Computed example of a mutant assay.
Amino acid sequence: MAWENQTLDSEFILLGIFDHSPTHIFLFSLVLGIFTVALMGNTTLIFLIYLDTQLHTPMYFLLSQLSLMDLMLICTTVPKVAFNYLSGRTTISVTGCATQIFFYASLLSCECFLLTVMAYDRYVAICHPLRYPSLMSLKVCGLMVASSWILGSSDGVIDAAATFSFSYCGSREIAHFFCDFPSLLSHACNDTSTFEMVLFICCIGMIVIPVVIIIVSYTRVLLAVIRVGSGEGRHKAFTTCSSHLMVVGMYYGTALFVYIRPTSNHSPTQDKMVSIFYTILTPMLNPLIYSLRNKEVTRAFMKVLGQGKSGE
């Protein structure tokens, strides 16, 4: 059945990832648990950084923005998955699909740029501590974060507009649990090779180049750490940087796997499994990694908890 003349009232069918077998019911419950932890963890981290004046520094401001992006990212996909599963519906409108693509692509891009800024922040803090107040002032930090949001949102607009500029035909079924443009492009009637090439170039700019900058930044950081005479200073630097490197490894590793490949080489099952990792698991792990391995965040949490108990 052709559907090349799709309208805003048209609907796509999301095949999803769960059926109603006992195993999948357990996995669905696990996803809801992960979503709850991610929601609470990122929200708590944002409020802790906002409430504690000692955390009003560029590093924690960047961390709060990362939590905000993770919070928005997981809310872009999981609520729709849960609604469709619980209601028995599998459809999503063209408007809903375009909205998902916009937010999903925007937030992924925003996070790519933000993680690069966070690597630069750690590089300046460790390699040029005396110049840190000027190189990473709140104004400079704010401009970098604003640029991340603007560049990411621009990418989301381009991806959503380009995806729906094509005519689609054949089955309306999307072999995914959310609207991801590689999955949609496989249904396009038109030749999408030019767009795929542009998409590949964009991914080089948003994934590969930031990865190179991050690697260079942390190479310089590691060389500086090795020269640190104090064992305590070396430990603190390694702890701070290792948290960021764990996030970067998880995030960019899966993003590279999904987007630096031609659409024709995509396997729906592989894409769904990898997408679960960076759209659901990573937003949950980020606040846990930063909070459990960060004494300042733990101190702020205990302080707020203590104030709450004393006010009872």
Results as ranks from 00 to 15, higher is better:
59 M>G: 08
118 M>Y: 05
52 D>K: 13
42 N>A: 13
240 T>F: 00
249 G>V: 00
29 S>G: 11
198 V>I: 11
171 S>F: 07
83 F>E: 03
212 V>I: 15
16 G>D: 08
141 C>H: 01
122 R>D: 13
170 G>H: 05
188 A>H: 07
40 M>C: 14
10 S>F: 09
215 I>Q: 07
191 D>V: 04
164 F>I: 01
265 N>Y: 12
197 M>Y: 15
163 T>S: 10
249 G>T: 06
107 L>D: 02
100 Q>M: 10
142 G>R: 06
66 L>V: 12
216 V>K: 05
107 L>N: 03
146 A>N: 05
212 V>F: 15
40 M>H: 11
271 D>V: 14
87 S>P: 03
199 L>Q: 14
285 L>C: 15
191 D>S: 09
26 F>L: 13
271 D>W: 15
83 F>D: 03
180 D>K: 11
105 A>D: 11
54 Q>H: 12
112 C>F: 14
274 V>H: 14
104 Y>H: 14
100 Q>G: 12
35 F>E: 02
131 R>K: 06
253 G>F: 10
194 T>W: 09
124 V>W: 10
76 T>C: 13
263 T>C: 08
19 D>Q: 09
127 C>I: 03
208 V>C: 12
101 I>Q: 05
78 V>E: 03
205 G>Y: 13
206 M>F: 15
108 L>R: 00
75 C>N: 14
136 M>H: 01
214 I>S: 04
